[in-house]
Structures are given as structure tokens and as C-alpha cells.
Nucleic acid binder design. Structure first.
Lengths: 276, 276
DNA sequence: TGAAAATTGTTATATTATGTGAATTAATTA
DNA sequence: TAATTAATTCACATAATATAACAATTTTCA
């Protein structure tokens, strides 16, 4: 009879793994699985809910953003399905990214679900944010942050501002750091689907002292329509798995630092509540 | 014998999935499927209706709003509670507003849930839209419309662009019609909560050939912080109930036309319940 | 090591979800 | 239009789950 006990971080990982697999976990289920009391699991649920990694309902926990997760007076729109998938990886990446920011900096946030995860974690920090992403601007604006947007056109594929005017507006800003989301990484640089988006990203990179790319490992080796930037303009890549050898060498040769985010959920509650 | 019980969130997922698939679901259908009582399913329907994810009729539940089957993935963030409340009135107002627009015009859309209702109905029309509202821009952008936004700051209270830069950008545009949402109507003009918003609205009005105010009757006689505009700048007011005598006279004296949208509501409801 | 802090388990209490049958409302048919 | 039937709401009982307070345990760190 195996009746070993797990540590909090292990339990929480088990919870998230089950959740990702089944879409729903119940308290008694996990309590048995972890060989612990229901109360403990409830407290784990509470913890993970505060981080936005799950949503509690009566009798179970579900993926955040599902219809039932919405309380009646939800003001914020939920993220779409794509953002929910792989959220643990995104959360881990965002956590590392957060540590790159210092109080009172001006940062630029690009579009995409990983960058959104960062925006979510930024809430409450004393910084100024510039973003072309409508969801990010809305989310942070609602949270009381100082958010600026460029003028321009709203493109179909992504809810974001693009176009000549946007690039022009962008050129009048200067950022301490910009966080770029990309859809592909090949040996000659970072890639994105749409040409319009690429123009914006390039301009953003040009206006920043420091450029950080956020991407999850699913994009390794993928080449899309347009190249955003050569490696030489990027200072740091944050991802959650080590890139394949050749890619890694190209990156290192160009002086791009790489940070790997481990997805174990440990006690970062403290970090958050004390946080700045 | 499979007689397992499902959790609320699972049932609601099943309801939405069936709805998506068949376009219509009945209470007994789902009750059997979920192995639960009809009362519970009714309560689920009620819950989902409040989120705007389905519409109830006698004997069944159907897709809300437009008949075109929306994929669940692409379902837009549900509107906030305020938007859901009084949705029928807003729908009726939006329907009348829609008739004021002609193809290939350039129109400006202000913020607020009533204006959002209009934006939703505009989808697919060959027009150019300018908006300061993040939800509206996102909604229409996703639907493939040509949407422009000014640059500026995202204010806390409303998800919209405000500030000096926004007003400046706005002044470079000219609109055929602008649709303004307001939070108060008194005998000396239209009012709004926030001074920042008011500045934007005033600028919008100044750049338009024709100005139309959309408001529901709950705002009659209410005075807020700042006055947007005198009546003389407004051409048309669309609402769903006749304003009280004094207000009506002031409006008419200033040459503001008034349209009441009420009969449309019942007609629309029938249309929906008959299954389009 | 020992004291303080954090985590976990237990119990009693409160809250929420569900099921039932009667009362009400809406649709249907003669 | 009245009578009939089906669907819905309402009010209450019951079961399931969550919370809060406190005791027991483990971990941390001086």
C-alpha cells in the first residue's frame, strides 16, 4: 500500500495536470490521489485560483474562462480557449519575465497569449505600459495601470492595432523593455504570421533598450510568413523547454540569453502579496 | 448502467455543445442526457441566459441573437452585467440606429453598452468605423470590419481611449454620423460621468455631420458630473420610452428629433422564438 | 536543539445546489 | 373564447459542499 505524502507544489502540479487532462477536477478525487484531506485540497484550489490557474465552482475546479467559471458580475471578458491551453507554461514564462521588470520602468507589451499572461501578472505594479493589444490594454486599464496605445487600424486576425499610423505613433515612444510574442523561431530569426504585425513588432524592438521574446516550446523550428527581427536585436528569450541544439547554438552565437521556466507551482503567493 | 452525475460546469458545457450542434435544445432532452432533474436544467438555462450564451423560449433554448451559428471558440467575451440587463431595450434602440446608416459611410462609435449593441448589429455592413471603445473595436475588428482607433491613454473606469492625444487624433477625422452613448439627460443637455470621456465625446460631436445619441430611459432626468453637449449639436435621440414632458419640450425646442424604439422588441422576440 | 511559523487535519457551522410537488403561466385546440 | 395541456416558476426539504476556528503536526531557522 503506497501512502506517501506529497509536498504542496507536487499536489498543485497534480491538480493542474488532472485539470488539463480532464477539464474538471473534484475535491474528493484529488484528495484520494494525493492521500490527504479534502480541506488541504480546498486550500490548494484557493491558492491556484488566486493565481488565475483554475476556477472554483461548488464541488469542483475547472479551467478558468469556461462559462461556469464566470460569476455574475464579471466585468472582464475571459480569454479564449487558446489562452487557456498550456496556461501553466505561459504562467511560468510570465513569472520569469516579471522578474526582469523594475519599478517605474516603461515597458512595451506586444500581442499574444503568453504576453497576456505577463500582463496579468503585472497588475498592481508601479510601471507604465504601452501596448498594441486590445485585450492587454483593457485588462491592465481596468486594473488601474497607466496604459497607452497607439492610434491605427484594428486588424482582423488579432485584436490589435496595426498600420502606418501605429508605427508612426510608436516611434515617438522609448521603452526600457519590450516583451515580444512570436509565432516561430528558426535559425535565422524570429517569425510571425502577419506582415502587419511584423512591422509593429520591428518598430517596437527598435524603440527599446532591451528586448525580450516570450514563446512556448511549440514554436521551435517553425517558420512563418515574415521575419520580425534577427537574433542580434534580441537580448533574452524566455521559454519553458530547452530549444533543440542547432537553434540554441545560433541564439548563443548571436548573444541571445536564454531562460527556461520550470512549470512547478511553488509558493509565489508571498511574492505576489508582498510584491512591490 | 451509466448513471453518473455531472457537475454544473459539465452540464453547462453539454448544453452549449448540444446547442451549437443542433441550434436548439429542450429541457427534457438535456435532463435525460445529464441524468438529472428538469428543474436543475432550467436553472442552468437561466444561468447561461444571464451570460448571454443562450436565449430561452417556451419549451426550448436557442442561440442568442443572430441565427448564424457561432463557434464556441470564437465567442466574444460576454458583455458585462449592465449590458445584459435591459438587453432587449438596447437591441431595439440599436435596430433603429442601424437604419440611420447608409452604405460606405464613415461612422464614429462612442463607448457604452447601447453603442456596443449597435456595433454588434453593424457587423458585415460595408462601412468604415472609428471608435474609442476597446470592446467595440475588438468586436468589429474580429468580424472583419475596417476599424480605426485614436492613440491615447486607457482610462480605468471604462475600457476606452481618452486623453489629449486621443482628442488630437480625433480632430483629424471627419465622420458622416457619430453615435454617442450618454449617462444622463437633463433640460440643459446630455451628461456623462467622467470628464475625460466627455472631452472625447465633445470632440467626436464636433467632427461629425450628424450626431445621434443612444440612451435607454433609465437615464432620463439624471445629471452627472460633466455636460457633453448642448442639445443644439445633437440631431437625433433614439431611446425606448417617451421622455417626460419637460425634457421632451426642451429637446424639441432645440430641434432634436426623437425616435422611440419599442414595438420592435416584441416583433424581434417572436422572430427568435419561431426559430428565425 | 528549541521556539516560531507555516502547514495540515478535525470538527462544527454556514452556504449552495438539487429535487419534489403544488401553483402559475403560456401555448394549443375545440 | 374557454378548456386543455404542457412548460415554467415557486417554495420548501434535503443533500452536498464550503468555511471558519482551533488542535495537531511538520517545517524553518536562529
Amino acid at each position: 500500500m503506497t501512502s506517501r505524502k506529497y509536498h504542496a507544489s507536487q499536489r498543485r502540479d497534480m491538480i493542474l495536470t488532472s485539470l488539463e487532462q480532464d477539464g474538471l477536477v473534484t475535491v474528493p478525487m484529488i484528495a484520494k490521489l494525493c492521500n490527504t484531506s479534502e480541506m488541504t485540497i480546498r486550500r490548494d484550489f484557493e491558492f491556484l485560483e488566486e493565481l488565475g490557474l483554475l476556477a472554483r465552482t461548488h464541488g469542483a475546479a475547472i479551467l478558468p474562462g469556461s462559462p461556469s467559471a464566470k460569476k455574475f458580475d464579471t466585468i472582464e471578458p475571459s480569454l479564449d480557449r487558446r489562452a487557456i491551453l498550456n496556461q501553466r507554461a505561459k504562467f511560468a514564462i510570465a513569472t520569469l519575465a516579471l522578474q526582469q521588470i523594475e519599478p517605474n520602468q516603461t515597458i512595451a507589451l506586444d500581442v499574444g497569449s503568453t504576453v497576456f499572461a505577463l500582463a496579468d501578472r503585472i497588475k498592481g505594479m508601479p510601471i507604465r505600459v504601452f501596448s498594441t493589444s486590445l485585450p492587454i490594454a483593457r485588462h491592465l486599464g481596468q486594473a488601474g495601470a497607466k496604459v497607452y496605445m497607439p492610434g491605427g487600424e484594428v486588424q482582423g486576425s488579432e485584436p490589435s492595432i496595426v498600420g502606418v499610423k501605429a508605427v508612426e505613433d510608436l516611434r515617438r515612444f522609448h521603452f526600457d523593455i519590450s516583451f515580444i510574442g512570436v509565432s516561430g523561431l528558426a535559425e535565422d530569426g524570429f517569425y510571425d504570421y502577419s506582415i502587419e504585425e511584423t512591422e509593429i513588432k520591428s518598430a517596437m524592438v527598435a524603440q527599446s533598450k532591451r528586448n525580450i521574446v516570450l514563446m512556448d516550446s511549440s514554436k521551435f523550428g517553425r517558420v512563418s510568413v515574415a521575419r520580425i527581427s534577427e537574433f542580434s536585436n534580441i537580448d533574452l528569450l524566455i521559454t519553458e523547454q530547452t530549444p533543440p541544439g542547432p537553434l540554441q547554438e545560433s541564439l548563443k552565437a548571436a548573444g541571445v540569453e536564454i531562460l527556461i521556466a520550470s512549470s512547478v507551482v511553488t509558493k509565489m503567493k508571498k511574492e505576489i502579496s508582498n510584491g512591490f
